[in-house]
Amino acid sequence: MEDRQRFVPLSVRMGKREPFGATTGMPNYLWPSIRDWFDTLFLLPGIGGKSELLLIVSRTFRLPEYLTWQHLTEAVAKSDPELMLDILDLVMHAANDLELAKLEDILFDVAHEYRVDFENQRLIQRVDDTVYAAYETAVSVQDVASEHLAKAWLATYSRDTNYDVAVAEATKAVEAVCAPLVIPNDKTPSIGKMIRAIKDSPRNWECSLPATRDRNAVEQFAAALSLVNYAQSRHAGGLNSSRDHSVALLLQAVTVVAWVRERVFRRVND
């Protein structure tokens, strides 16, 4: 979670100017900072230089021949801001952690729609700090569930979105964390099987979720799993999952994974 505050100009603090909004694309006030960041990147050891990067970018994005890196980037920044973000997304793979941190500072200062994904060295959509903090906590554990959650997050929020992949990976994350607890001997575990196992032997489980008038705590957890299972069954096989559906399922998966790891749901006497 970001633990700093953006600078608020005096005129805004005094109510004489409207607050600045979020930044999208590559506006004129952002491009000089990104251009300077590119120039610093070329000073790093192991970077092939502007001419080599020019060729890589040109063939990757099917661009016509440009004489220099500067000609290419200046032209694209003015004519196609979205392509400029694609180029930045590609070039970030060559940056070290220090340069990525500098880029994140630049994007943070203008409240850009994208932030830096340090793990994958990609641009990722900026989401609510609390939501992102929950995700970071969930993937901080080095296990299979974290790997699936990270893939689901990229498929949902990167510039290469694939919502069907996101749904599948979020579901796999829940299966990976729950199967060893609920049906450890099943070689082909699924959320549906886990739900049945919980409902068939409710006294084997304890749960710290609040109960409702209609459901006890264990049933509440089974219902949470049912939401993931229902989403997966409806959208299996590449049925064009929507962004809203992908986001909802991903956040549900992050929550369920956290519950299991924190023993909110557990075996009796375990």
Rank of each mutant, 00 (worst) to 15 (best):
V177R: 03
A133S: 15
M14F: 10
V12R: 09
L43Y: 12
R62F: 07
L10T: 09
P81F: 00
G237Y: 10
V218L: 01
G46N: 10
I47V: 15
L90Y: 15
K193Q: 09
T212R: 05
L123N: 08
V139Y: 06
Q70V: 14
E169G: 02
N120L: 05
V165M: 09
V167Q: 07
A168T: 09
D129L: 05
E147F: 02
S51N: 14
Y163I: 00
F221E: 06
G49K: 12
H93F: 14
I56S: 02
N185G: 15
A77N: 04
A173W: 03
D160Q: 13
S208V: 12
P27D: 12
I183T: 15
M84T: 11
N28V: 13
H112E: 04
T137P: 01
I34P: 00
V144F: 03
V254F: 11
K151S: 14
R13T: 03
H112W: 03
K50D: 13
A133K: 09
W69Y: 15
D143Q: 07
A168F: 06
P45R: 10
S33Q: 11
A155T: 04
I183R: 06
V167S: 03
A224L: 06
S226C: 06
V57S: 10
Y29D: 14
T60S: 14
S201K: 11
S242Y: 01
P19A: 02
E65R: 12
A22R: 14
L44I: 02
S158L: 13
M194Y: 03
R261Y: 04
Y66C: 05
V182P: 10
W37K: 03
E104C: 06
H148S: 15
G237N: 05
R213C: 03
R234T: 06
L90H: 15
P32M: 05
E119L: 13
A168W: 02
L239H: 09
N204F: 04
W153P: 01
L83Q: 12
K16W: 11
T188G: 02
L54I: 09
D117T: 04
L225Q: 08
L55G: 15
H148I: 02
E175A: 01
F265A: 02
V131W: 05
G25M: 13
L249F: 02
L209P: 08
D143S: 04
T23S: 08
D164E: 15
H112S: 01
D3E: 15
R243L: 10
S158F: 09
F7D: 08
Q252C: 07
P9S: 06
V174W: 00
I191H: 01
W69P: 04
